[in-house]
Design a protein around this nucleic acid. Structure first.
Lengths: 340, 340
DNA sequence: TTGTACGCGTTATCAA
DNA sequence: TTGATAACGCGTACAA
């Protein structure tokens, strides 16, 4: 018969139960289960066995309450519709969960005030660590993050600012690489088409401008910046706009693969030869890029690696281990296929 | 000067701080902030003001420890690469977060043992509710879920089994609808191509068989079942296989849009006229489906609605409110575009 | 190397 | 309607 333990007894298997069975004190069980070095080898094994026998699982709430922080890691991304962030989250999960952390995902919907709210709400969990996307946030959010003293890693973009941890790539440089490629294959009137004007998009625009100016081919009229959400459909309609206004363009840098996919479809329908009449380049190398007609030339970004490296960096930060590289540049790769 | 509260004082603003400021007891603050009816109107407002002034935020860990369950809701999906589940999760988030719950996402990678592990680990949080995908799980997982007595809602598939809550659609029926459409437009040799043979895929296969048999056109040779992960690339290679083995097929039901998109691209490259020579239908109506060349005819499933309805149902279950409909069939819609 | 005492912030119980 | 008291399960500080 079960010993009714207390007024509110929940029936859960607790540290105390394991302790009783293993004939030691609760704190010893706690230490043993967490791999504390100060518990004798065979005692630890004995305790582990007892815990297994009882099916003991630590209560995260009790743990969090008794500790300076919880086992939660909060990750804030601007969107889930964009598979770039999904890939990233998947990798983060795969590193953090085995390490014993729970990942709390926040979708900011590309809105700074939304991010601020999420941050405030997640900080209440006293997370072990936080991951945020980029550097563009409200002053309040920034301050809250610093004040919380929670280890933080920034995703997607990189900076050399001291004391700031970041994993990502140089968006400007990558964009300039695209332009240089188009110039190299002889294109002269190169347009830039973007939507969802988030910081990374604007950085790519900067890279485009830089490279175009350097080649003395910059023409502001060739920039098509659309503030609404990016999508395949938007790509299709933007390319139509572009051709109407500038029938002389011989190349277009669509600022992401969704846009590019929409453009390719539309051009195919219109009977405009790609890349002969107009070359098309995308950005990110999403799943479909290798299968469009024609196959899309694009910049490959390693989102999974960003997620992995960022998670590992955060883990080190949480554990107080030294972080050799506060900034990790995962780079990018120009994948030349058929469209340019 | 701050009053140093205790030996380990954390500096956080607690219920006690608010209580002191509002000149009431901690428990009254607790009740007031949770909207307990038993707290007088103006007292509650007074307390609320004090809480705001102090910037009080409840500690989820303490709350969870003192309550029968935490504010966590665990959601288990088989994949994040498939945007079907991302759409679903986004909707779930949008309902659950404003309601004060934290969403813990688990990616089972289409593996039952993985799901079992995740479930065990998440159940340790004593979640307020759980959402799982479909009904196919290990006996242990099933039992753990029941034993936990945590309210659960099943996603994507539906059942009339008593005491089981589900929100989704009849996959078989939807698949049969596809076949019927193809038959209606005069196709006779209709193939079925699938990958990632998860339960929903197999249910669609059943629907295909049922409708083909009913039309006396069933030919097992026309089923191409590929066990590997589904992807655009796989769709491209499977359609090639199919044409090689059965040059006489005049229609193909690709069991999801990714597969269909790959097929469409490949057929375009091969110069096979769609839909004239071969009609193609997909499933799910993902973002790209309306922009393929030719535009994809497919089954539209409302993932966002599944997520919303499931979240609302779970909320009701958690609150102990009566749930009028334990099974919600969100249905589907055949979207006829150009490919069939 | 192991154990004792206590606090973490909140809610449930019971009394007023 | 409000309050005092006692858990909730675990980890830290300090002692043995």
């Amino acid at each position: 018969m079960a010993t009714s333990r207390s007024r509110r007894g929940t029936g859960r298997v607790t540290l105390a139960d394991v302790a009783k069975r293993a004939q030691v004190s609760a704190i010893t069980v706690s230490r043993a289960l967490r791999g504390h070095a100060s518990v004798k080898r065979d005692l630890a094994e004995h305790i582990q066995a007892a815990a297994n026998a009882l099916g003991y699982v630590p209560d995260p709430a009790a743990r969090a309450l008794a500790s300076p922080h919880s086992s939660v890691v909060a990750v804030l991304v601007p969107s889930l519709s964009n598979s770039v962030f999904v890939d990233l989250l998947e990798a983060v999960h795969d590193v953090l969960m085995p390490a014993g952390f729970d990942v709390l995902i926040g979708n900011t919907h590309y809105q700074r005030d939304h991010e601020e709210r999420l941050l405030r709400s997640y900080l209440a969990h006293r997370p072990a660590g936080v991951m945020v996307t980029g550097f563009d946030r409200t002053e309040k959010a920034r301050r809250a993050l610093v004040a919380s003293r929670v280890p933080a890693v920034h995703l997607m973009e990189i900076t050399t600012a001291p004391g700031v941890y970041s994993v990502g790539l140089a968006q400007e440089t990558a964009a300039a690489t695209v332009v240089d490629h188009l110039l190299a294959i002889g294109r002269k009137r190169i347009a830039f088409v973007a939507a969802q004007l988030d910081p990374r998009t604007l950085q790519r625009a900067e890279g485009y401008r830089f490279a175009m100016r350097r080649a003395q081919r910059y023409d502001p009229a060739l920039e098509l910046l659309h503030p609404e959400r990016s999508s395949i459909g938007v790509g299709a309609s933007l390319i139509r706009d572009l051709l109407q206004r500038h029938p002389d363009v011989d190349a277009v840098f669509m600022c992401n693969d969704d846009l590019a996919q929409g453009a390719l479809g539309e051009l195919l329908r219109l009977g405009v030869a790609v890349p002969q009449t107009i070359a098309v380049v995308g950005f990110n190398d999403l799943a479909g890029a290798a299968h469009t007609v024609p196959r899309l030339t694009t910049i490959r970004t390693d989102r999974a690696r960003i997620g992995r490296e960022a998670a590992q960096m955060l883990l080190a930060l949480i554990r107080g281990e030294p972080v050799s590289q506060p900034m990790v540049d995962v780079g990018y790769e120009l994948v030349i296929r058929e469209s340019a």
